[in-house]
Write a protein that binds this DNA or RNA. Structure first.
Lengths: 353, 353
DNA sequence: GTGAAAGCGCTAACAC
DNA sequence: GTGTTAGCGCTTTCAC
C-alpha cells in the first residue's frame, strides 16, 4: 500500500488530460459518437462503441463536467446550507441527504453560514450558488439557517429542513412539538407538580420543543416555570443544572437536547443531588450516547437521517417538476429510560402542603 | 417570516437566469469588460465598473461556474471523500476543511464511501469526479478511506488526512502513536501492572493508537494483553466492558476512542464494578462529552478541525503548484481527568503475589 | 482602458 | 446509426 502510493505520486499532475476530440480521433469516429456512448443518449453500433471504450481506457479520458454541464444545462449537484455540520442532529441530517443523493447520482455540496446578516450570508453562499446547482437544501435549525433561506434565488429549487413548519415552503419536518408534549405528559404522569425546561437556542421566537412543553403544562393546569437558556455547548448545562438543583421545588427538568441534559445532570450531581431520585431529567434527540449515560437518558428519538432523506426526496420531486407533496412530517418517538422517575417523597409532601 | 415565505414561493422557478451578455447590454459595455469586473483581472474605469455592478444587481446576475471553469480551466471545488460524516472525528475534520476552504473561496463537496471494493468506490465517487474539481481530500481514517485513496485519478491534486503516516503522499496527520504511548505511560505510572486495549476498527494492519500502546508496554517491560475489538458503535463497548470487568487482573483499559470508552465504562458499571476505583478507563479524542461523563474521562485531545485546516492548506499549496511542505503533523495532548487512578489495593496485592 | 474575435470541451439539433 | 453544424456562458488573446 505504501509502495503503491510512492509509485503513484510522481505521476500526479503530469500527463495533460485528453479531450473528447482525442478519443474520437483515436477511435476513428466523430465526436458526437463518443458523446453518445458517454451519455447513452442514442444507439451506437457495437463495433464503434467498443472502439470508443477502448480509446477512453487507452487515453485515460475523463469528460470535463464543466463542459458537460455547460452544454447540457443540467446540473447534478445539490447544495446544502447549514449553520453547523458537526453537532449530532446536523451531522446526521447531512448524512441522510448525502446518502440518498448519492443513490440518485447527485453530489452534495456543503456550505456553512455563521451569520444572520444578509451581506455575510451572501458572501458565504456566493461560491456555492455560482455552481450549476440542481437544487438547494437549507437546514433551518437555527437563526443563520432561517436567514439563509431567504437569500436563495427564487430560480432555484429549494427545500427547507427543520423542526418547525413554515407555510408556503417545500419542507420536511420532525413534529417536535407533539413529541415534546408527550414527554412533558410522561413527567407529569409520574407525579411531578410541574416540569422545568432548559431551552436550546431557538431558531425563531419559540421552538417546537418549547411550544409542546408549554402546551402540555397548560392543558394539565400545571404552573409554567421560567425558562433557562442553554447554548449548543453541553457545558452550558452544568451551571444551569447546579442552579436548578438548589431549588427544592424543582423535581423534573426537560432539556432541549440530550447534550444539554448531560450537562444539566452533571451539574445536579456536582451539587450533590441525584438523578432520578431527587430530580428527573429528560433530553431530546436520542443521541447515540444517551443510552450509555449514567443514568440512561429518557429522551425522544429523532430520525434526523430520515429527515434528510425525506427532504431530498421532496427536492428531487421539485427538480423533476412533479407536483407531489410539498410537505413531509414525522412524529418522533418517546423513549423512556432511567433518568426519569416519580418525585421523591419529600417533594410530594411539599406539594401537598 | 412565514408571510415572506408565502410571498416568495410562487415566484420560485420563474425568471430565467440572466447571462453576462444581458449584463453587458444593460450596462452598455462589452462582455469582456463585465468579465473584467467579475474577475478583477484587469483595470476598468470607475464609471463602467459602477455601471456593471448596477447591472449585475438589477438583473440578479450570478456567473455560471461551469462556463467559468471551462473558459479559465480553473476549478473552485474541493472534494472530500470520507467513510463517514457524522462521527465526531469525521464531522470535526470536515468542519475544519470547509471552514478554511470557504475562507479561500473554495466550495466543498462531500462524498461518502462505504465499501472497500474498487467497483463500489468508483461508483460512489464517479459523480464527484465528474465535477470540475480543484483537488481532493481523502479522510484516510478507515478501510474505505484507504481504498478510496487509490482510486483518485493521478491528474488530480490530492491530500490524505489521517492518523498514520504514509510515505510519498501529501498528507496531514495527528501523531497518535506518541500520544497513545504517553497515555499508556500515564496508566503505568499510576501503578497498573499492565494496560488492556480496546481497539477501534483499524484503517490498516495496525493503528497509531495501538502501536503507541504496544510500544509503551514493551518499553516498560509490561505484559501485552490480548486486544479487544470494538466497532464504531459505542454500544459495542458495553459487552467488552462487562467481559473485562469479570477478569480481576484487569485494572486499566485504554480505549481507542471516547465513545467506546463510554460504552466500556457502562459495561463495567453494569457488572457491578467501579471506575476508576476498581478499573481505570481512558479514551482518545476528547469528545465534547468526555468532560461531562461520569466519571469525567481521561483522554487525549485531538484537534480534528485543525487537521482539516492543515490538510486543506497542503492541498492548496499543491494546487498553486508550490513545492512547499508535503507533510504536516501535530502532537495531540494528554488530558488527565477522573476516570484513571491507581489500581485498587487488592489488585496490587495480587500483582505482588 | 476597451472591444472584437476566438475558443474552453462538451451536447443537441438536424441532416443523411 | 452516424457525421455535420451550432451553440452553452464565460475568459482570453490581441488589436486599438
Amino acid at each position: 500500500m505504501t509502495l503503491a502510493a510512492e509509485v503513484r505520486v510522481p505521476m500526479r499532475s503530469q500527463r495533460k488530460a485528453s479531450t473528447i476530440v482525442d478519443v474520437a480521433a483515436y477511435a476513428g469516429v466523430s465526436v458526437p459518437t463518443v458523446s453518445r456512448v458517454l451519455t447513452g443518449a442514442a444507439k451506437v453500433s457495437d463495433a464503434k462503441r467498443d472502439a470508443v471504450r477502448a480509446a477512453i481506457a487507452a487515453l485515460d479520458f475523463r469528460p470535463s463536467s464543466a463542459a458537460r454541464v455547460l452544454a447540457s444545462r443540467k446540473a447534478e449537484v445539490i447544495a446544502v446550507i447549514a449553520g453547523d455540520t458537526s453537532t449530532y442532529g446536523y451531522a446526521e441530517t447531512i448524512r441522510g441527504i448525502e446518502e440518498s443523493a448519492r443513490a440518485e447520482n447527485y453530489t452534495v455540496m456543503i456550505t456553512v453560514v455563521e451569520s444572520t446578516e444578509d451581506d455575510e450570508i451572501d458572501r458565504a453562499i456566493a461560491a456555492t450558488l455560482a455552481q450549476p446547482l440542481a437544487g438547494v437544501c437549507v437546514l433551518k435549525f437555527d437563526p443563520p439557517g432561517v436567514a439563509a433561506l431567504h437569500r436563495i434565488p427564487p430560480s432555484l429549487p429549494l427545500v427547507a429542513l427543520s423542526g418547525v413548519r413554515e407555510a408556503g415552503l417545500r419542507q420536511a419536518v420532525l413534529d417536535e412539538s407533539h413529541a415534546a408534549e408527550e414527554l412533558t405528559d410522561h413527567l407529569l404522569d409520574l407525579g411531578h407538580a410541574t416540569v422545568h425546561h432548559v431551552r436550546i437556542p431557538p431558531s425563531r421566537r419559540e421552538d417546537g420543543r418549547t411550544t409542546g412543553w408549554r402546551r402540555a403544562l397548560k392543558r394539565r393546569g400545571a404552573a409554567v416555570p421560567p425558562l433557562a437558556d442553554a447554548t449548543w455547548d453541553p457545558r452550558s448545562g452544568i451551571e444551569i443544572g447546579r442552579r436548578l438543583a438548589e431549588d427544592p421545588a424543582v423535581t423534573a427538568i426537560f432539556c432541549g437536547n440530550d447534550e444539554i441534559a448531560m450537562g444539566v445532570i452533571r451539574g445536579i450531581v456536582t451539587a450533590g443531588r441525584s438523578v432520578p431520585d431527587d430530580i428527573s431529567v429528560a433530553g431530546f434527540d436520542d443521541h447515540p450516547l444517551a443510552a450509555l449515560w449514567t443514568p440512561p437518558l429518557t429522551t425522544v428519538d429523532q430520525d434526523f437521517a430520515g429527515l434528510g432523506r425525506r427532504g431530498l426526496q421532496l427536492l428531487l420531486n421539485e427538480i423533476a417538476g412533479e407536483t407531489g407533496r410539498r410537505f413531509s412530517s414525522e412524529r418522533p418517538q418517546l423513549i423512556v429510560r432511567d433518568s426519569t422517575a416519580p418525585p421523591p417523597p419529600t417533594a410530594e409532601v411539599r406539594r401537598i402542603n
